[in-house]
Simulated scan of single mutants.
Amino acid sequence: MADKACCAPPRGAQSGLAAPRIAPDPAAHLRNCRPCPGGVALVGTSDPQIPSDCEGPLIQKRVRDLWVEAGTITVAQFRRFVMATGYRTIAEQLGWSFVFFDHLPNRGEGTLGVDGLEWWRKIERATWHDPTGPQGAPASDEMPVTHVAWDDARAFATWAGGRLPKEAEWEHAARGGLGDVRYPWGDDEPSDTNAKHLNIWQGEFPVHDTGGDGFTGPAPALAYQPNGYGLYQMVGNVWEWSAEPFRVRGASREARQINAAARGQKLLKGGSFLCHRSYCYRYRIAARTGNTPDSTSAHTGFRVVYDHAP
């Protein structure tokens, strides 16, 4: 169960590009956030499903009060940032990004794929505003912004007066006050025919998504019901960049090997619309993955947290 089948591959060679310095803009007025009370946060799980990701053990950390964006940052929010700053994302600078093949004409026939992950296609000029490339439909305002690298996410967060969340903060927010649960709504497993809480894959990956949750691609950022803290889609839909590097706890030989292999990667949380229990069971709160900070894809976005009330 649960290899990295749906997770986006890294760029073949790290680009060396980095975001320009962006100053906070007090006039941004972008916040659509909810209060998240501090306290003792639960991080990880005592029932890991993907041991190689080092999801366990379940530990406690103290976190402060936060204000968390209700959803992942939307296309409309990101557009305001770009218009105010002239910012160009790493995908725009490099001229391409990864797109899932079933969202392309003729399933991306004639485009370059990734060895062993052929459903990911290298699409020229796929960007946050043209998520399947210039021949596809432009991004809708209410959708989560995607094709953003870690540096892009951090630049936006700084401009908006916030930051990316730490893993403990993200998990604390995702639990919504419920404690040691597997999902933001509790422990009930989503159904293949009716995943009413989140946007994941139903059917046979990668050939057919039944759309039992209402979508066969990304859903609007504020779709479905929010959790106990008023936060939408903390799992499923799009992966969310965090503030931290991807690393695993512990001093074992395995932990050292994993950390060495993941050197330079950043942590992502939450899973995406391509996750399914049979092969990528990462739409759980404790699930985690990593990728190089310059990597971009059609199922990776971010959420912003703030240390002070709006």
Rank of each mutant, 00 (worst) to 15 (best):
L222N: 10
L58K: 09
L267P: 01
G228F: 07
Q233G: 05
G203P: 01
H103A: 08
G133V: 07
K266D: 05
A91T: 06
H147Y: 03
Q265E: 15
Y183Q: 01
F100M: 05
D25Q: 07
D151Y: 10
C7Y: 02
N227T: 09
A168V: 08
V82I: 15
P20T: 03
G86P: 05
E240M: 11
E109C: 09
A2E: 13
P165S: 12
P144L: 00
M83N: 15
A5T: 14
G110K: 10
A18C: 13
R154M: 07
D213W: 01
L231H: 09
V181Y: 02
D130L: 14
P105G: 10
K61G: 05
N32F: 09
G161F: 04
L17T: 01
P24L: 11
H103R: 11
A160L: 06
K122F: 08
I22G: 06
T193Q: 10
D307A: 14
G177D: 09
V304K: 08
A137D: 15
W159T: 01
G162Y: 00
D3S: 14
S278I: 11
G161S: 05
L66R: 14
L178I: 12
G270D: 10
W96S: 02
E204C: 05
P105N: 07
A286T: 14
W119A: 00
H308L: 12
I22K: 08
A27C: 04
A70T: 09
R288I: 05
V43L: 13
I285D: 03
P57E: 13
P220T: 04
E171P: 03
V238E: 04
P144I: 00
A168F: 07
F81K: 00
T216I: 14
P10W: 03
P10S: 11
T132M: 04
E171W: 00
L112A: 14
P20L: 12
L268E: 03
H172W: 13
W239Y: 07
T296I: 02
K269T: 06
P206W: 03
M83G: 11
G38F: 12
Q60L: 06
W128K: 06
A262Q: 09
Y281I: 03
